[in-house]
Nucleic acid binder design. Structure first.
Lengths: 361, 361
DNA sequence: GTGAAAGCGCTAACAA
DNA sequence: TTGTTAGCGCTTTCAC
C-alpha cells in the first residue's frame, strides 16, 4: 500500500505555491519565470504570456524575503522621527511612505521619542531588516545613529545639518524665504514691533529660523530688542509663556512670530486669555503649516514647510547617494491671524497700549 | 605568485559579516550562534557568553530576511487605513507601530485613499512581504481585500463589522457609552433640543453612532425630529453645512453633536460665522478626540475613542486569531464647548431665538 | 532566448 | 548540549 501523500483533504490545500509551481504550470524553467516576474526584456513574448497566465491562474505572489535574500536588496527605506505627538510628522511620514512605494520600496518607520535607547532599538531594527537607506528626520544630529549606520555604508539623509561623510546627505531648508515673506507682510501691514517666540536652544532648525527672522527684520529696518525674543520650547505651553512675557514688556509687540505652529497655538490661547483679539489687537504667525492651522479659529497665518516635500527629497537623496538633494522651500500662507496693528499702538507715545486692554467679549 | 585575494585594502573591508563569521570567531558552530541569538535556553552559559562577545566585537546583526525565509515567519503585521488626511489615523498608526514592536513585530502601513486600485496594491504588497496578519482600519468592509487575504488564511481584524470567517476577528467599539454620557451631559445642562450631524450613509461607524445618539436621547426623554438630523460626510464642510441647516429650522437646537471631530471643527467655524458664540449660544460636542480638539479655541468637548486602544486591540487580535478582541470603550471628555443653553431658548415660546441673533463682536 | 545549478544567510531536524 | 547539513524561495551566472 502506497503511502498517501496528499497533504490535505480539506479545501485548504496550501499547495506551496512557489516559483517552481508556476514554472511547471507554465511549462518553463524557474529561471524564465523569474525573468518574467522581473520584466527582463529578453524573454520571448509567447513564453512570457504563458507565464503571466499561470501566475494569474494560480494567484502566485513572489516572496519578497527570498528575493531580498538572494539579491541583497531589501527594498526597504527607514525613516526616523522624534516626537510622535508633533503634528508635523504625520504628513512627512505619509509623504515618505507614498514616495517610497512610488519607487518600489517600503518604508520602515521608527520614532525615538527623544529617547536614546529607543533610538538604538530603531537603528537595530533597521539594520536587521537590511534597510537600503535611512532618513533621520529628527531635526537634530543623533550621534549614536551615525556610528552604526554610517559605518555600514548605508546612505543616510539628515535635515539642515549632519557630519560630513560620503554616504550622508543633507536636505537644506530655505527658512529665509518664508520668514522674509512673513516679516515683509507684517511690515507692510504697519507693524514695527515684532515679537519672536523661538524653540529649544540646541535645535538647529529653531536657531536657523531665529537667525532668519533677525536678518529679515533688519532688512526691513525693524529693530528687535532682546526683550522681544522669548526662548520657548516648541510646545503649546512655551507659546503661552512667550505671550505672557511679550505682553508684559514696556512696549509690547503688535505682532508675534512663532518658531512653530504648536507654539503659535499656545500663543493664541494666551492672547485670548489676556482678553486680546487676533488679529485686531495683535497679529500672529506660526511656522510649519500643520493641518491644525486651517481648522483653528481664526485660521492661522503661517509659514509653510511641506513635510511631503521634505519626504520626497529624502527618498530621492537615499536612492541617489552621490547627488545633492533638492532644497526645500518655505513660503508664507496668509490666513486670518494677521492684520493692521491697532491705532493706539501706532501712536508715538511710549505707553502705547492702554493700561487696561479693552476686553473683547 | 598567488593571487591576492584580499577583498579590499581600504578600511571598508565589508568582510561579509554573517553567522558563520561569528561562529568561527567564537569557536562554535553556526547552530550554536543561532541558538544564542534566539535565546534558546539549552545553551551552555560559557559558550553563550563567548558568542555574545563575538557578536558584540564584530557588530553582528542577524539578517531578518534570511530568518524569515527559513522560519516562514516574517514578523510583519499590516495595517490598512483609508484617508491619510483624517487626523484620527496618526495616533492609531503610531499605536499599532508601537504595539507591534513591543511584541517583536514590524508594521507595514498602507493607505487606500478610498481607491480600490490602491487597495489592491496594498494587499499585493502585504502578500509579497508575507505579513502574518492584517488590520483593516478603514471603518468599512472592503470586499477585494477579503478575497485575497482571507483565502490565504492570513489573520485579519476589522472594526465594527466584517464577514464571518474563522481567520477574521472584529473589534467592537462601544459607541453607546460615550454617546450616552454626552447626551446626559447635555440634558443635565438643560438642553432639550439637540441637533446631530452624522457621517456618510454607508459608513457603519457613522450609523452606529447615530443609532446610539437616538436611543440615548430617547432614554433621557428628548425627542429628536428628523429636521434635527443632518446627513454630513465627516468633513469640515459637512459640519459647516450641517450647522447652516440646523440654524435654519423653526426651532434650532441649542446643542449639536457631531459624528466626528473634523465635522465639529467645521461646525465651529459655521457657528462663529453665524455670529453665535460657543458655548453661550450653542453647545457643541464632537467625536474621536483627535489631537486637534485640545488646541482649538474653545477646546472642544468630545467623545474619546482611543486610536491607541484600537491599535492595541488589533495587534492582539492578529496574534491570537482564535480569541475575541477586547472591546474598545468610548467616553465623554468635557472641555469648553458645552454649557447651559441661552435663557431665550428655554422659554416655552416657539420662536425662542430672536430673529436677528445678537452678533458677538 | 532558455535552462541547470549554485548559493543568499539563516533555522531546524537529526546525529553525535 | 553541540555540530552537521539540508533546505527556505528566489536570482543569477554560466552553458547551451
Amino acid at each position: 500500500m502506497a503511502i498517501r501523500k496528499r497533504a490535505a483533504t480539506a479545501k485548504k490545500s496550501k499547495a506551496k505555491l512557489d516559483i517552481r509551481t508556476v514554472a511547471t504550470a507554465a511549462g518553463v524553467s524557474v529561471a524564465t519565470v523569474s525573468r518574467v516576474m522581473n520584466k527582463v526584456p529578453t524573454v520571448d513574448a509567447q513564453l512570457s504570456k504563458k507565464v503571466w497566465e499561470a501566475v494569474q491562474r494560480l494567484g502566485y505572489v513572489p516572496n519578497t524575503q527570498a528575493r531580498a535574500l538572494v539579491s541583497g536588496r531589501s527594498r526597504l527605506l527607514g525613516v526616523i522621527i522624534s516626537d510622535i505627538t508633533n503634528p508635523f510628522f504625520p504628513e512627512l511620514i505619509q509623504g515618505f511612505e507614498d514616495k517610497a512605494i512610488d519607487v518600489g520600496y517600503e518604508a520602515l518607520i521608527g520614532s525615538t521619542n527623544y529617547d536614546l535607547q529607543r533610538m538604538e532599538q530603531c537603528v537595530q531594527r533597521m539594520l536587521e531588516r537590511q534597510v537600503e537607506g535611512v532618513a533621520v528626520m529628527t531635526f537634530g544630529i543623533e550621534q549614536p545613529i551615525l556610528e552604526r549606520l554610517s559605518s555600514e555604508g548605508i546612505p543616510m539623509v539628515f535635515i539642515d545639518v549632519a557630519p560630513r561623510k560620503k554616504n550622508i546627505s543633507i536636505i537644506h531648508v530655505n527658512y529665509d524665504q518664508g520668514i522674509r515673506e512673513a516679516v515683509q507682510h507684517l511690515a507692510a501691514l504697519g507693524h514695527r514691533r515684532i515679537g519672536y517666540i523661538t524653540g529649544p536652544h540646541l535645535l538647529h532648525s529653531a536657531n536657523a529660523r531665529l537667525d532668519a527672522f533677525l536678518s529679515a527684520a533688519e532688512r526691513v529696518g525693524i529693530r528687535v530688542p532682546e526683550s522681544c525674543i522669548f526662548h520657548g520650547d516648541h510646545t503649546s505651553e512655551g507659546g503661552s509663556r512667550g505671550v505672557e512675557h511679550l505682553l508684559s514688556i514696556k512696549q509690547p509687540p503688535t505682532a508675534i512670530m512663532c518658531s512653530n505652529d504648536v507654539s503659535a497655538l499656545g500663543a493664541m490661547h494666551a492672547i485670548s486669555r489676556a482678553g486680546l483679539s487676533i488679529p485686531d489687537d495683535i497679529s500672529l504667525i506660526g511656522f510649519d503649516d500643520i493641518k491644525l492651522t486651517e481648522y483653528v479659529l481664526p485660521p492661522l497665518t503661517t509659514i509653510r514647510m511641506s513635510g511631503r516635500d521634505i519626504a520626497a527629497s529624502a527618498v530621492y537623496a537615499l536612492l541617489n547617494p552621490g547627488t545633492a538633494p533638492k532644497q526645500v522651500e518655505t513660503s508664507l500662507i496668509v490666513r486670518q491671524t494677521t492684520g493692521v496693528p491697532p491705532k493706539a499702538a501706532l501712536a508715538k507715545t511710549s505707553s502705547s497700549r492702554s493700561s487696561s486692554p479693552k476686553r473683547h467679549r
